[in-house]
């Protein structure tokens, strides 16, 4: 049963990813991203990590991609011709980063298949909400605080940008 669900949602995730990169219409790409993120959160549920799954949906599918959609709709990026990408430096960097990603994923899979290397940790222990909270405020307090400060800085930055922009228009 679990295997069936895993294969189903895994296929959905891959399909969503293919839609993201393969579709010329940016709206469909954003929706493919939602499908991929939602399927990945379903995979977290199968692993017993309910909290991570919920956060995945709330933060990524519920908030970030909505903002993507906003931007795409308001800029009216429907012009499919303009989106035809040439082979540039950007795509070279993209390919390199993609290879790094594949390597990291491969290493993780290797670590799981050959236990004892110490990289793998059963997700179901991490997934319980209480344990996540406890870990965040004990072992991982410093990364947690650093993340908060980065987010705060981003927020302040946005406010500053808006203010300057508004002033420039008014004067």
């Amino acid at each position: 049963m679990q295997l069936v669900l895993f294969v189903l949602f895994g296929l959905f995730a891959v399909l969503g990813g293919l839609i993201v990169v393969g579709n010329r219409n940016p709206i469909y790409s954003a929706l493919g991203l939602v499908v991929a993120l939602f399927s990945i959160s379903a995979l977290y549920v199968i692993l017993g990590a309910y909290f991570v799954a919920a956060v995945q949906v709330i933060v990524y599918a519920g908030a970030i991609v909505v903002l993507f959609l906003f931007v795409i709709m308001l800029l009216n990026l429907n012009d499919r011709e303009r989106l035809r990408e040439q082979f540039t430096l950007r795509s070279v960097i993209g390919i390199v980063l993609g290879l790094v990603f594949v390597a990291v994923t491969g290493l993780t899979v290797w670590a799981v298949v050959h236990p004892g290397t110490g990289a793998a940790m059963p997700l179901s222990d991490v997934g319980h909400t209480k344990q996540v909270g406890r870990l965040l405020f004990s072992n991982y307090l410093l990364p947690f605080e650093v993340t908060s400060v980065i987010l705060l800085a981003g927020m302040v930055g946005v406010l500053v940008l808006i203010r300057f922009h508004g002033r420039g228009h008014r004067s």
């Binding site: 309910y50 956060v55 709330i58 599918a61 909505v66 906003f70």
Partner: peptide, 19 residues
């Protein structure tokens, strides 16, 4: 286990239909 977060996650997905 996450009861209310489940509600919250789905409520945030409701935006897509409208948009």
């Amino acid at each position: 286990d996450i009861g209310i977060l489940y509600f919250y996650a789905l409520a945030s997905l409701g935006v897509y239909g409208v948009i």
